[in-house]
């Protein structure tokens, strides 16, 4: 099953901290969004493997923008 990790804050992608193929566990930080000097951690919602990374640094996010796809 594919799970999409989405942005829950508008802002810019500050960094993605996982790579394709990485195993992640639920609650693990996978990326950070920066909005006006507030950094927001983005977490994996379930265990899985990073299938694809849809964003790069400085991409602009809206609430709900897809960021990372996990294969759970």
């Amino acid at each position: 099953m594919e799970i999409t990790v989405k942005a829950h804050m508008p802002g810019l992608v500050a960094r993605v901290v996982v790579n394709e193929g990485d195993k992640v566990t639920a609650g693990q930080e996978v990326a950070v969004i920066n909005c006006m000097k507030t950094e927001i951690q983005v977490f994996a919602e379930s265990d899985g493997v990073v299938k694809s990374i849809l964003v790069k640094e400085w991409d602009e996010m809206e609430i709900g923008s897809p960021m990372i796809i996990l294969e759970a």
Binding site: H8, K37, E39, I40, Q41
Partner: peptide, 10 residues
């Protein structure tokens, strides 16, 4: 300088 970090769900 000020840097805020947030841990949040939806």
């Amino acid at each position: 300088g000020i840097l805020t970090e947030l841990s949040a769900e939806m």
